[in-house]
């Protein structure tokens, strides 16, 4: 934590991480139009992610995926009063500068877009706006936190409707955190080396047993039961991308996923939320995706 003067301070670590704390237990929904943003807010989303194409369409249409048009982001900000997030390409700090100038509430430095830098991520300490970044394991999460990320989401495999990668990533992060808490102090140096993460963060997690920032999960969540699965596996909340607006009845499905996220440990409520939702997104099995098309492998 940065603990500085007694005067007013914007963009502090506490304020950046704090907004994510307020989103806990909630669902963040991908939207591509103001109309979808309205549906998401009405269904009980805690925030919306403004983007040009949902991951399923990026996957289907191919090409380079970039930050959204500023006009679209502004229209979505104007439509809703809940926090609005938007995606920048990995390493594209100028897209991030633009998003901050647009007054978004959070930036997602996202592997769903085409990376702009295959070596460096954005220096997120340089911004007042907070960042969320994806991670497939604890070392990756800690490298992003070290660069200034104020929130982590496990990556999953976006745009597939297949939750298996999300399960793998949230389980991996949880297991690696638990493993650190069992190590003796003199074993943490090597643990930091093996995780390729800063020793200070590794030691902090060994002591507290949790990440210093909020951990959401993402990538392939398509049903109320998927969302509850992620919560039971220890996620603080859920991102739903293509799963809502690529389904038969987005309004109802969005509200049902919100309910299942709140009552994630109550099978009766999850059952009730799962009834009569119509068609889920069709989906792609991750195992059928050729390796170059796996978005989770972007970022390092």
């Amino acid at each position: 934590m940065t603990e500085t003067s007694s005067s007013s301070e914007t963009g502090s670590t506490r304020v950046k991480r704090g907004l994510a704390e307020m989103l806990k237990g909630g669902v963040i929904m991908d939207v591509v139009t103001p109309e979808q943003a309205r549906i998401a807010e009405d269904a009980g989303a805690v925030a919306v992610m403004a983007l040009e194409r949902v991951p399923a369409d990026i996957r289907a249409q191919g090409g380079v995926a970039r930050m959204s048009d500023p006009d679209l982001i502004e229209a979505i900000i104007a439509e809703v009063s809940i926090p609005v997030m938007a995606k920048a390409r990995i390493g594209h700090f100028v897209e991030a500068q633009v998003l901050q100038a647009l007054d978004v509430d959070y930036i997602d430095e996202s592997e769903v877009l085409s990376p702009a830098d295959y070596v460096n991520h954005i220096d997120k300490w340089a911004f007042t706006v907070p960042f969320v970044c994806g991670a497939t394991n604890l070392g990756e999460a800690l490298r992003r936190i070290n660069e200034g990320a104020a929130m982590i989401r496990s990556k999953g495999e976006a745009g597939t409707g297949d939750v298996s990668e999300a399960t793998k990533h949230i389980r991996t992060i949880g297991a690696e955190v638990r493993a650190l808490t069992a190590l003796s102090k003199d074993e943490l140096y090597v643990a930091a080396k093996e995780l390729q993460a800063p020793y200070e963060l590794v030691a902090e997690i060994a002591a507290t047993g949790k990440l210093p920032v909020v951990l959401f999960t993402a990538g392939g969540v398509a049903t109320p039961a998927d969302a509850a699965l992620m919560m039971q596996l220890g996620a603080d909340g859920v991102f739903v991308g293509s799963g809502i607006f690529k389904s038969g009845n987005p309004e109802q499905r969005a509200a049902a996923i919100v309910k299942a996220t709140t009552f994630f440990d109550d099978p009766a409520e999850i059952t009730a939320a799962s009834r009569g939702l119509g068609e889920a997104m069709v989906g792609i099995n991750v195992a059928d995706l050729a390796a170059p098309h796996r978005l989770a492998e972007r970022g390092w």
């Binding site: 007694s6 005067s7 007013s8 301070e9 914007t10 963009g11 502090s12 506490r14 304020v15 704090g18 907004l19 307020m22 900000i77 926090p83 901050q100 007054d103 978004v104 509430d105 959070y106 007042t128 706006v129 907070p130």
Partner: peptide, 27 residues
Amino acid sequence: GSQLDSFETELDVPAIGPGPVRAAFIR
């Protein structure tokens, strides 16, 4: 306003006693 205007500051709250309150205002 938006998250960019979220801030922390110190407040005097005599009702809870002397000593400032470190207060985080988030949206």
